[in-house]
Each structure stands twice: as C-alpha cells, then as structure tokens.
Simulated assay, not measured.
Amino acid sequence: GQGIPGFGGGPAGDAYVELHVAPHAFFQRKDDNIHVEVPITLKEAVLGGRIEVPTIGGTVSMTVPKGSNTGKTLRLRDKGVRNRKTGAAGHQIVTLKVVLPEGEEPELAAFLESWQPASPDEPRKEMLS
C-alpha cells in the first residue's frame, strides 16, 4: 500500500525496494561466521607472536602460534554475526598468509643459502607421486 494510487481511484499499489550489497574488501560472510585472510610476516610465522586483526566490531589482538604456515586457520570466538533466531554470535575465522618482505633482504638470503633444515620437507611430494 505504499506505492502510487491505482487507476480510476483504485487502492495504492506496493512499493518495492531493491538493495545491492557490494562485497567487502577483505571480510566474507559464511552463515554467521566472518572469514578474513590476514597477512603475517615470515618472522611472525616462524617465531609466533601477537598481531592486530580487524573484526567487524573493531581491531583485536590475537596470538599467532610458532611455526604457522600460510593457510593455517584460527578462530576468534563470538566475533561473527549475531544470529537473529538464536541470539548466538558466530565466529571470525582468520586464515594466515605468510608474506615475504618487499625488496631484497641480503641477510635472509645468506641465511637461507647456508641453512640445512633438521628434517627436510618435500612440500610437493603428494602432487608429484
């Protein structure tokens, strides 16, 4: 009944509102959970430490465990979207992405050239067998 009046004095029609929601630059919603990919430095990945993470409610501090790799997921409990029916909040799922430093790092390169891992990994083993 919020539209324009009908022809010949008929009742008002309905008004339709169409909304378009653009995707967020880094948050993705899946059900009540919010997913975000967070870049971390090589040092943070290897040694662990506290980092600042954006949430839909503001920035929070979280711990990156030692030895974290790209793709590791961490959960921020109750930092997702509140469910209208249950009232329970979803979680924020943080996926870590190791990012190498911009530009040259001669000390890092020299270290890696001389480094011999205690247990050498073959990260592509499953792909090539």
Results as ranks from 00 to 15, higher is better:
residue 112 L to F: 14
residue 112 L to K: 04
residue 27 F to D: 00
residue 120 P to C: 07
residue 85 K to N: 03
residue 15 A to P: 00
residue 62 M to N: 06
residue 84 R to M: 05
residue 32 D to G: 00
residue 91 H to L: 00
residue 77 R to L: 08
residue 16 Y to I: 06
residue 34 I to A: 00
residue 66 K to R: 13
residue 87 G to N: 02
residue 112 L to Y: 12
residue 5 P to W: 05
residue 93 I to Q: 04
residue 49 G to K: 11
residue 33 N to P: 00
residue 67 G to P: 04
residue 108 L to C: 04
residue 16 Y to C: 01
residue 27 F to L: 04
residue 45 A to R: 01
residue 78 D to N: 10
residue 122 E to V: 10
residue 112 L to H: 02
residue 49 G to D: 14
residue 75 R to M: 13
residue 119 S to L: 11
residue 24 H to A: 13
residue 113 E to V: 06
residue 118 A to R: 07
residue 114 S to Q: 14
residue 21 V to N: 08
residue 42 L to S: 05
residue 29 R to T: 04
residue 11 P to W: 05
residue 33 N to Q: 02
residue 115 W to Q: 09
residue 35 H to K: 10
residue 124 R to V: 01
residue 60 V to W: 00
residue 13 G to L: 09
residue 16 Y to T: 10
residue 61 S to C: 12
residue 85 K to S: 06
residue 119 S to I: 07
residue 3 G to D: 06
residue 127 M to I: 12
residue 10 G to Y: 03
residue 110 A to I: 11
residue 22 A to L: 10
residue 127 M to N: 04
residue 13 G to M: 12
residue 61 S to K: 09
residue 106 P to C: 15
residue 3 G to M: 04
residue 105 E to A: 13
residue 44 E to I: 08
residue 58 G to L: 06
residue 84 R to A: 13
residue 121 D to W: 12
residue 29 R to Y: 03
residue 14 D to N: 09
residue 30 K to I: 05
residue 75 R to A: 12
residue 88 A to D: 04
residue 62 M to A: 06
residue 128 L to A: 05
residue 80 G to A: 02
residue 77 R to A: 06
residue 108 L to F: 11
residue 121 D to S: 12
residue 103 G to V: 05
residue 47 L to W: 15
residue 75 R to V: 15
residue 39 P to L: 10
residue 67 G to V: 03
residue 98 V to E: 07
residue 79 K to Y: 09
residue 37 E to R: 09
residue 10 G to N: 09
residue 21 V to F: 15
residue 40 I to Y: 03
residue 89 A to Q: 04
residue 104 E to W: 05
residue 74 L to C: 07
residue 69 N to A: 12
residue 98 V to T: 11
residue 11 P to M: 13
residue 19 L to D: 13
residue 126 E to H: 07
residue 85 K to H: 01
residue 51 I to F: 10
residue 51 I to G: 10
residue 104 E to V: 05
residue 128 L to C: 03
residue 33 N to W: 00
residue 45 A to M: 07
residue 17 V to M: 08
residue 81 V to Q: 04
residue 109 A to W: 01
residue 13 G to I: 07
residue 109 A to Q: 14
residue 32 D to F: 02
residue 30 K to Y: 14
residue 10 G to L: 06
residue 52 E to R: 13
residue 37 E to S: 09
residue 129 S to M: 11
residue 59 T to K: 15
residue 53 V to H: 11
residue 58 G to M: 08
residue 21 V to I: 11
residue 53 V to T: 10
residue 31 D to M: 04
residue 70 T to M: 03
residue 60 V to E: 12
residue 117 P to I: 02
residue 126 E to P: 00
residue 27 F to A: 02
residue 71 G to Y: 13
residue 30 K to L: 11
residue 3 G to H: 04
residue 127 M to W: 03
residue 109 A to L: 12
residue 66 K to L: 02
residue 32 D to Y: 03
residue 14 D to K: 15
residue 89 A to F: 14
residue 108 L to Y: 11
residue 13 G to P: 03
residue 81 V to H: 02
residue 84 R to K: 07
residue 50 R to P: 07
residue 75 R to Q: 15
